[in-house]
Design a protein around this nucleic acid. Sequence first.
DNA 1: CTATTGATGGTC
DNA 2: ACCATCAATAGG
Length: 209
Amino acid sequence: MTSTLHHIAAPSDKLPRRFYDRPALAVARDLLGKHLVLDAPGGRRAARIVEVEAYVGEYDLACHAAKGRTARTEVLFGPPGHAYVYLIYGMHHCFNVVASREGRAAAVLVRGVEPLEGLPPKSRTDGPGRLCDALGITLSHNRMDLLGDQLFLLDAPRVPAAAVARGPRIGVDYAKEWAHKPYRLWIRGHPHVSRSPSRPPAPLPARGA
DNA sequence: CTATTGATGGTC
DNA sequence: ACCATCAATAGG
């Protein structure tokens, strides 16, 4: 690139390794708004990340790595910027981004995306299982390098702090004190956030109508 | 709207 | 046996 002062990120810039080489909470925060892209012979599928959860380390009882190093969790201990995909309940896939330096085990689960390109028209993309289904993410993507040319993330404008909401992670009640920590982040009011409260009621007709 | 249940397979 | 889910169903 030619700019000698600051570099304005073009929407086609892949997130660099150093983006992922940080604590999971920081990566999670900055993943909001970024673009998740799958390039395959059939074409490109892309979506904007609107909801994530941070799994911050082996000491985090909600993180799969809390079980220690196993065949499944090994990727979490590996270098940052790789995909961690697993099958849950025998039928749904969950897509995570590996964060933190090699030797530490942390990840960010993507829980909601907004369709941008190449998705089946009526597909739902709220919820970790549904978004993997819509994008075509399967176990074949597990351990894939996110700086490769098949599955990667593109830079996009930062979501302002005022638009970021936080709350406890979903479905981790077994994780004792780690269950309530506010490590779920989402874009406030975004329609593709999972488990959103119902839409605000339609405006009432004029009184007396 | 909430609450409950069944599907289904990798992992430990 | 457990599970970072989802769709369908029943009930208020």
